[in-house]
Nucleic acid binder design. Structure first.
Length: 658
RNA sequence: CGGGGCGUGGCGCAGCUUGGUAGCGCGGGUGCUUUGGGAGCACUAGGUCGCAGGUUCGAAUCCUGUCGCCCCGACCA
């Protein structure tokens, strides 16, 4: 299939007017968008590549990988969070896809392609339509000409589970694992960093179905292994971490992080390598609290001391002796607005993700959690609460429910939400949900607000404060914390880019969408499910973030758009052109993915570009061409090697396929 | 959504405070010279300053609105 290019090689003139195989759009005959690389894509003349490299960093890019992908001509922004994949990047994406495909297939997973346009009623059945389309929801949605609502798939649980409900009847068909590599649409609150967080991006997503949880665990472990092989084959350094399941739901989940400074996630890991988790999820041992003196509880005048810092400065307390109280309001899909009092030890920070999970679990009846926001003056006004009833800055865990009483207007009159809102109108609960982190509840005696302005209590005990709040793990683990598995170990922080995530979903979606099978005993039961994602386009950029130097990208060989670039140093030297063309043909024939820089540019320009676009091996055909001598340069090590043209193929093959 | 910043030839920027109808570098084209790490010289094409109003004799510049893009945040009372 590479014959078209071979034929043209002979006719390509010095001015490169010959039509190359690449321009015949042979690729479209592949049929599959994300299909494997085939021979028409084996080689490329740079003069035909529409390659535009930039000298200056584009103003739109902030992080190095984004700058390099733009400068080296891999991508262009079309609008915020939406990018075109140019020819070189498309090859990278196809290579990554192919590695993913091979490893997925090796586990017995089946490739499919599911619709991106998905009917609202599917999402209503799973209970996610409102949450995904209203407010902070990320699903692009539209109404078709029949007036039916449709969403653009941000993920495919609903579709795949519906298919499973249709197709899976018996335990004899199980387990199965289906995957696809496809464009996803997510209307991100804030797209950023190019392909890192786009609104349209390429993802591999897989969904497995099982007769029981043990089988799910088995496939989950298979996926863990497959993912490790995929990232290793892509040449990436990754770390697998415990993760929060987030909006997808379910129980166990693990993320795969490409370690890089520009990563959006914070990973906390122990030096012994036995524990690693996303900070959202991480657990650790808090430091011991300093004990407070035995004096009985008494009021302390603390005018203007509304922060932990001020209390500490004025009275010499240690932050660990204080219970701080955060006042928040959680809004749910059914319109409920639930005031929440969170008690934390003064030296600890709230982990919002843990809080959101706790709220979702405790108040499951109210549907999806849409928002958690602080209660402040604006909130008091909005809900016509008694002004001044809530003594901000002096809150105690026992703040009375009657501070939520309304003054004046009848409930809800002045504050209905926009009439066209798809979500139920908000309705304020008139009592607090009281939660406390274990580190706060463990304090025998502590300092806390007195629920009146300018006053705290010293030596309070939980017994003094009425009913105990619900105990939940709410504190954020921090770098330096002691580890649970071995208190002599401490958590260390690394930044990471999440490129993969695997979940044990359980039966959440199968139950909601009535996807059942008949078990061995002849009874119907919901399928067990797992899901497994890889951000293919994000992975490409993460690879750049992890593999670059001052001169440009240094692609790992396995995902480089081409393995080799042959540079003709001086196009006016017929001997050089002739030798380069000969080597170009030889490498193609040997199946090497090779590009030929046949542009009429000075050598320096071509060297710079070769470095910038990051091709792993550069062959320079220059002055030595007359005597059949060429130069082989490795992009990463920069090592140069002079050799006879006849030895190039052998030498390269050793490097490329050791 | 809140905060901050930015929109001026293809790209990166200056000009704006103190209104007088655009400038620099790179890039593009042509020619000559040069030819192993982003060449030199000459000539040349290309923008009416995001868009819409307004003020003014006159607006890239001042005012209002609007659109787009980037960054931080959307928890710590």
């Amino acid at each position: 299939m590479q014959c078209a290019e071979s034929r043209n090689r002979a006719s390509a003139s010095k001015h490169h007017t010959g039509v190359n195989a690449q321009t015949t759009l042979a690729g479209s005959a592949l049929g599959q968008w994300y299909g494997p690389l085939t021979s028409p894509f084996l080689a490329m003349r740079v003069s035909r590549l529409m390659l535009v490299t930039l000298r200056d960093d584009p103003a739109e890019a902030e992080i190095v990988s984004h700058k390099l992908l733009l400068r080296a001509g891999y991508t262009r922004r079309i609008s915020s969070g939406i990018y075109a994949y140019l020819p070189l990047l498309w090859r990278v994406l196809q290579k990554i896809s192919q590695i993913v495909r091979e490893e997925m297939n090796a586990t017995g997973a089946l490739e499919v392609l599911l619709p991106q346009l998905q009917p609202a009623d599917l999402w209503e059945r799973s209970g996610r339509w409102a949450g995904y389309t209203a407010g902070e929801g990320i699903m692009f949605h539209l109404t078709d000409r029949q007036g039916r609502e449709q969403g653009l798939g941000p993920t495919h649980e609903e579709v795949i589970t519906t298919l499973a409900a249709d197709l899976i009847r018996s335990y004899r068909q199980l387990p199965v694992n289906l995957y696809q590599i496809q464009t996803k649409f997510r209307d991100e609150i804030r797209p950023r960093f190019g392909l890192m967080r786009g609104r349209e991006f390429i993802m591999k997503d897989a969904y497995s179905f099982h007769a029981d949880e043990a089988s799910l665990r088995e496939t989950y472990a298979d996926m863990d292994g497959a993912y490790r092989r995929i990232f290793a084959r892509c040449g990436l350094r990754t770390v697998a971490v415990e993760a929060d399941s987030g909006a997808i739901g379910g129980s166990a989940s693990q993320e795969f992080m490409v370690t890089a400074e520009a990563g959006e996630d914070l990973v906390l890991a122990s030096a012994d390598g036995r524990y690693a988790a996303n900070q959202e999820r991480a657990v650790s041992l808090a430091s011991e609290a300093l004990p407070l003196g035995p004096d009985p509880c008494q009021q302390l005048s603390t005018p203007g001391q509304t922060t932990i810092e001020a209390l500490v400065a004025a009275h010499g307390f240690d932050p660990s002796q204080i219970v701080k109280v955060l006042l928040l309001a959680a809004r749910f899909a059914d319109g409920t607005v639930q005031p929440v009092l969170v008690s934390l030890r003064g030296d600890q920070q709230l982990n919002e993700v843990k809080l959101a999970n706790a709220l979702t679990a405790v108040l499951a009846d109210h549907g999806a959690l849409l928002e958690v926001a602080p209660i402040d003056g604006a909130f008091v006004e909005r809900w016509s609460l008694t002004p001044g009833a809530i003594p901000f800055g002096y809150l105690g865990p026992d703040l009375a429910d009657d501070t939520l009483d309304q003054k004046g207007k009848a409930p809800g009159v002045a504050l209905t939400s926009a009439p066209q809102s798809p979500v139920a109108p908000p309705r304020l609960e008139r009592h607090f949900l009281r939660l406390a982190d274990l580190t706060a509840l463990d304090l025998p005696r502590f300092v806390c607000g007195a629920n009146q302005a300018d006053s705290h209590r010293v030596g309070a005990t939980w017994a003094d404060l009425g009913p105990l709040p619900q105990t939940v793990d709410l504190r954020a683990a921090q770098p330096g914390d002691r580890c649970l598995h071995d208190p002599s170990q401490h958590l260390e922080a690394t930044r990471g880019i999440e490129v993969g995530h695997i979940f044990q979903l359980g039966r959440k979606y199968s139950t909601a969408l009535d996807a059942t099978f008949t078990n061995e005993a002849g009874q119907e039961e919901p399928l067990w499910m797992g899901c497994y994602g890889i951000g293919v386009s994000r992975l490409a950029q993460a690879a750049v973030e992890q593999n670059h130097d001052a001169n440009g990208i240094c692609w790992p060989l396995a995902i480089a758009p081409y393995a080799v670039i042959i540079v003709i140093a001086n196009l006016n030297e017929p001997l050089q052109v002739k030798l380069a063309e000969r080597l170009y043909g030889e490498l193609q024939s040997a199946g090497v993915e090779v590009m030929l820089d046949d542009r009429d540019e000075r050598a320096g320009v071509k060297f710079k570009d070769a470095d910038l676009i990051g091709i792993p091996f550069r062959v320079v055909v220059g002055r030595g061409a007359a005597s059949g001598q060429i130069e082989l340069v490795s992009r990463v090590e920069g090592e140069r090697q002079d050799l006879a043209a006849e030895d190039l193929l052998t030498c390269l093959m050793q490097r490329i396929r050791p």
